[in-house]
Design a protein around this nucleic acid. Structure first.
Lengths: 340, 340
DNA sequence: ACAATTATATAAAACGTTTTAGCAAAATCA
DNA sequence: TGATTTTGCTAAAACGTTTTATATAATTGT
């Protein structure tokens, strides 16, 4: 029945003060002029009993938890789980752990989550925010905790963010279809006010307008895949003869779209060309393979975590007040679904 | 410039003791006979200043962190991210947060992770373990923390687990192919000693043996998808005329296999029938759609988290010593890739 | 009217660290 | 030699809770 093991019990056992033990353990022996002999004595004993400091007590005292909160829309989306993987790996190497949640794009849940993480005193945040959390995020930033916003941009929130060039990507993808000779290009997106969605839509609209074509926009609600499929099916049924190409604003909308297109017996790209935002393993394997706008997942993740880590490693005094707005380029992957 | 807000500052401001504030906040007012008037006073003030208790301090004192560690093989695999989503949602509703990591099937990393989570005093663990962590997990269980093992079984580790009936699933999938008239059925798997892989293999072998056919087993290493593809390509090139069906032991191996099969111009199911363990959205959309053995992801997740929560909610005295071994059934999804 | 209960509230210890300020002994200096 | 500096170490406060044991005032019973 061994006593509970702590810095205090170590000190008691060695007949020295906890202060000394703490200094030694934190590598401040030199600085604090602890003799080599004593350092060795402490280290040996610590090794022997395999002591591990209690990080709760440390966190309470220092105010640092070495935990980063990762708040994404839905961890089961391939895009987000891939990001999660990269971020966790990188954070881990730097001594930080990740605690995560899915927001489901619910502002109330997101605010709740942020509050909980504040209670837990996490050191920093990487957030894919829904609409309606601007104030909360601003409060968070004001509290001095570093926050990196991902994937979308929030108005009136001045903090680091990492995005892709949604507007330009869709603009040029649309132009590409136009150059291929398509004249009736539809854009199918969510009826969402999230910046990345608006930007993608705007890119499409501008390209259509620049070519003096007529925009065909279909907005669907954020709903489950069965409903989504049903809506798209009726859309394509109605429009099958007046559309010759379609751009989907996300990969999961595209998947529902592909089901509908197949069900109606429309041939890709003969009857209808297809381009999707967000690449997906399925698109490469599909027959025909689906052209897509791929986001640089690794680069997004790396930039986000590095941005956060660099803020975390800075003393409060040397904090860089100007926010970093990183905008990364997508890759257009031309496949069989979009060629005349 | 407001002072830092704590239970102490509240007590001071109201001219009462921290004990009283604590009792009120923890709903023990009744029990501890704090007068209604005082309770109201405290609650009103707490509301007014929007006080949130410091969970670090609380954890330090109580030894409970309300954090559950989720350790999976790779959070970016659809199977695991889907599980993560479910588990997080469920844990959240019960006041627990999830902190996660990917092991990459690396025993050293996994042991490290467990140590770190021990330092953080997480309350419980859900682990998809690689080989070589048996001892560590046993130590963890011995320390009194509840542990639920997922997806695979470890020898000499006596703790709750949630698995699927791998052996029976593959046995009957193999029988199914045999009944369809296939005679030369290959089984492609990882050269892994993990129980779920061994069980799947054993199910295949038994079915083949029971029908007096010849087993054709291809084991590949745990490697990146490019190498995997290359190996499978050469395998199918060699065996294209001596195989009429193939079962893949995981969905990602199947994806690599499908690429190879397509590349070689083999037709499914005419030249070669295909069945995969683990369903995947891609399989439903592929041409032809791929028959698969689907794992009940929701049920797996629910069972795991409920098992853990029930242990967490029990007092140390009433702990159920007999471990729960839950084995769930898979669903065989017959699609076009496996019909004569 | 006095003892016994009950109601209300609190002091203080404990959880396990980190860190500031400072003390005593040894070494150096002049 | 006496003053000063350096060396080696530690006491004690602080972080913000929870909880045990206890004190005091009010009420009840006889």
């Amino acid at each position: 029945m061994s006593k509970k093991i702590s810095i205090t019990s170590i000190a008691k056992h060695l007949g020295i003060s906890t202060t000394t033990v703490s200094f030694v353990l934190n590598g401040k022996a030199q600085e604090k002029r602890i003799s080599d002999k004593l350092v060795k004595k402490v280290m040996d004993y610590v090794e022997e009993i395999d002591y591990k400091p209690n990080s709760l007590a440390r966190s309470l005292r220092t105010g640092k938890s070495n935990i980063i909160a990762l708040i994404v829309e839905d961890i089961s989306f391939p895009f987000f789980s891939a990001i999660a993987k990269e971020i966790e790996e990188n954070a881990y190497k730097n001594g930080y752990r990740i605690i995560y949640s899915s927001t489901e794009n619910d502002a109330v849940k997101t605010r709740e989550l942020i509050e909980i993480y504040q209670d837990k005193h996490v050191d920093g945040y990487i957030i894919v925010p829904p609409e309606g959390v601007e104030e909360k995020i601003n409060a968070l930033c004001a509290s001095g905790k570093p926050v990196v916003v991902l994937d979308r941009h929030l108005h009136n929130v001045e903090t680091d963010h990492v995005l892709v060039n949604n507007y330009e990507s869709v603009y040029s993808a649309t132009q590409y279809l136009i150059k291929q000779g398509y004249k009736n290009i539809a854009f199918i997106t969510l009826n969402s006010l999230q910046s990345q969605m608006l930007d993608r839509l705007a890119g499409y609209e501008q390209a259509i307008q620049d070519s003096k074509l007529t925009p065909i926009i279909k907005e669907i609600a954020h709903e489950d895949s069965v409903k989504r499929h049903k809506h798209l099916l009726s859309f394509f049924k109605r429009k099958r003869n007046s559309i010759d190409a379609v751009i989907f604003s996300t990969n999961y909308i595209c998947v529902s779209g592909l089901k509908s297109i197949k069900q109606l017996g429309l041939r890709i790209p003969k009857d209808i060309a297809v381009v999707s935002f967000d690449d997906y393993e399925l698109f490469e394997m599909y027959a025909p393979a689906i052209t897509s706008i791929a986001q640089p997942i690794e680069s997004i993740s790396e930039n986000a975590i590095n941005l956060l880590l660099s803020r975390l490693n800075k003393k409060a005094t040397e904090i860089d007040k100007d926010v970093q707005k990183i905008v990364l380029k997508t890759t257009f992957i031309e496949r069989d679904s979009s060629t005349r």
